[in-house]
């Protein structure tokens, strides 16, 4: 249980640091944005710029359904689990919830030329969706990539958590 809290706490600050255009918007407003199919298919300059910023906001960026603490799709959940298992440094990770923003949800598909969510970026480069992340995990390519990019925690995750527990006790 603590592990989950630590994970959630670590992810939260970056997960909410989206640019203005990517902030959650109220449902009524969200629906109004769905003007027409044609309008929706054109990736506006504004949306493209906001996605550019999001992609380059930190080394590891995941566009997902739900949040790392509460994924709302099995593919997003699996991807988060893999990244977590590898010990991606929360300081170098940001997650953007596409369900909070229809423009992002549609825009990211065009931006990446990729039809599904989740989508993983490392150092601004599109890596792939869940299938690719899982197969790269299985082949060892993902471990190599994350290590090369220097985005993993220094210590193995268990030690981080032990340290966090220690910190809690002292307070």
């Amino acid at each position: 249980m603590f592990a989950r809290t630590a994970f959630a706490r670590a992810f939260r600050p970056l997960a909410t640091s989206a640019s203005a255009a990517l902030r959650p918007i109220p449902q009524q407003t969200a629906n109004q944005i769905f003007l027409s199919l044609t309008a929706r298919r054109l990736l506006s300059q504004e949306t493209r710029k906001a996605i550019d910023q999001a992609v380059n906001s930190t080394p590891v960026v995941l566009f997902m359904k739900g949040t790392p603490e509460m994924p709302q799709c099995g593919f997003s959940r699996a991807t988060i689990q893999v990244l977590s298992m590898h010990g991606v440094d929360p300081e170098k990770f940001a997650a953007y919830n596409v369900l909070e923003d229809p423009e992002l949800r549609q825009g990211i598909k065009e931006y990446s030329d990729w039809p599904t969510i989740p989508q993983l970026y490392v150092d601004g480069e599109f890596i792939g969706g869940c299938d690719i992340v899982i197969s790269m995990h299985q082949s060892g390519e993902l471990a190599t990539l994350l290590k090369e990019k220097g985005v993993l925690l220094e210590q193995p995750k268990e030690q981080q958590e032990a340290a966090a527990v220690e910190g809690e006790k002292k307070e």
Binding site: F75, W114, P115, I127, G128, C130, D131, S135, M136
Partner: peptide
């Protein structure tokens, strides 16, 4: 892998757009 998936996505563009989940 990425280019293979892109080929499939392009071949099934309309199909994938209509369905909810796709894994290959």
């Amino acid at each position: 892998s990425l280019r293979r998936h892109r080929l499939v996505n392009a071949a099934l563009k309309d199909e994938i757009a209509q369905i909810h989940a796709w894994s290959a």
